[in-house]
Amino acid sequence: MGLLSKKDAKLITDPLADNNPITIQVLGICSALAITAELKASIVMAVSVMAVLAIGNVVISLMRNIIPSKIRIIVQLVVVAALVIIVDQVLKAFAYELSKTLSVFVGLIITNCIIMGRFEAFALANKPWRSFLDGIGNAAGYGLILIIVGFFRELLGSGTLLGFKVLGDPIEKTGLYAIGYENNGFMLLSPMALIVVGIIIWIQRTKNTALIEDH
């Protein structure tokens, strides 16, 4: 491994598990609830957040010495909003199909707490390259949880994965449905996303007891 130093590599691997934005820092829960009813949407959201967070982190990091501390949150908001709008416009002009798939997510990206959180906690105090890695790492940690939740919600709620009927056809009663299996419609509602995230947190902290906070 000559590409990344040990310290830099940690910026990417840490948020995947022991410092995961969703399960440990409890950031970005809102969008995790909203869009994980199907796997495809989870993946698209994960990729979009990664792009915005990585670029945004670099921009904020480049400006870190000239941003007045009194209005730094506003500056961060302006940067992320401008970035998202430009990306949205460019997609609409040159990749219209893709922009239609992304439509709902664009608004959600701006409001994602992870983005503001990383700008504030990391990019304002670190060099661009490290901020870039931090953005990639945190977005990956966020995306990982999104994809896990999306996987279970789509599988158990609709009996499909990425739209493919993996468990058989519920109306024609083929596959698993032939022996009396039923989709759990409750999985499609947002409370179940919270419960799935809760189960992930439970498993993660059982495996690594150092993560349990004592009060």
Partner: peptide, 30 residues
């Protein structure tokens, strides 16, 4: 230097001008 009120106000104005014209330019050219 960056804590001064005058600096903050000038920064805000310049930022709004740059971002505003950037967005207007992108929107109208696309």
């Amino acid at each position: 230097r960056t804590d001064k009120n005058s600096y903050t106000i000038i920064f805000a104005i310049v930022m709004v001008l740059i971002v505003g014209s950037l967005l207007a330019f992108t929107a109208s050219s696309l």
